[in-house]
Amino acid sequence: MGSHRERVDADAALPPRLAASTPYLLTRAVRAAARLAQDHFGGEALRFSHYVALCWVDHLGPCAQRDLAQAMSADPSDLVTVLGALDDAGLLARTSDPTDRRRNVLAVTDAGRNWLNERHARARDYDAALCASTSDDGAALRRQLAALLASRGGL
């Protein structure tokens, strides 16, 4: 039998103020999604964040790191580790920009495209697991999240 704390946590309803708090619920949902991502992508060196970054580079085509960060609404310095791991794995190529030698251009390699193709199925499984409790496989949730992001400039 579990501890008293486990029983309390499992049986406790949210305090009404938190149950009515969109930021609180969204924060909890993000944590739950991160735990689920760990289940789907945690057994390997490259994780969901690497998949996301490589999807963006694939979508944008060859691009500067600054442009990638802007498209992702991320700080360029936050991408350094992710992009370094993708580069080290041979999934991403960094070449000098012929118009500005101080900048690097990022591009998905053939190995990166193969890796992305293999991970798309895993990402679909992750999405399905995340949205399994919704009545429409998450379609309304995605629309609402997209609207929230659009209204806030892509946060």
Rank of each mutant, 00 (worst) to 15 (best):
T99I: 08
D88H: 10
L91P: 05
S77K: 15
L83Y: 01
A45Q: 10
D67V: 12
C55N: 12
P23V: 04
A13G: 14
D11R: 15
V57L: 05
P23C: 08
P15Y: 13
L14V: 10
N104T: 13
H50D: 11
L18D: 13
D97T: 11
L46G: 06
D39N: 10
A34C: 07
P15W: 12
G61W: 10
A89Q: 08
S49G: 07
T99W: 01
H59W: 11
V52I: 09
D100N: 13
Q65D: 03
A29H: 13
L68W: 06
A85Y: 01
P98L: 07
W56V: 02
A19Y: 06
Y24F: 14
V30M: 08
R47N: 03
L18R: 14
G61S: 05
A32Y: 11
S49F: 10
A64I: 10
L46M: 09
A33L: 14
D39H: 10
R47S: 01
P76W: 09
P98A: 03
L60V: 11
D11A: 15
Y24G: 08
Q65S: 09
A74P: 00
C63G: 03
R28E: 07
L26I: 06
V57Q: 03
A10R: 13
R35P: 00
L91F: 14
L68N: 01
L68D: 00
T81R: 15
R94P: 11
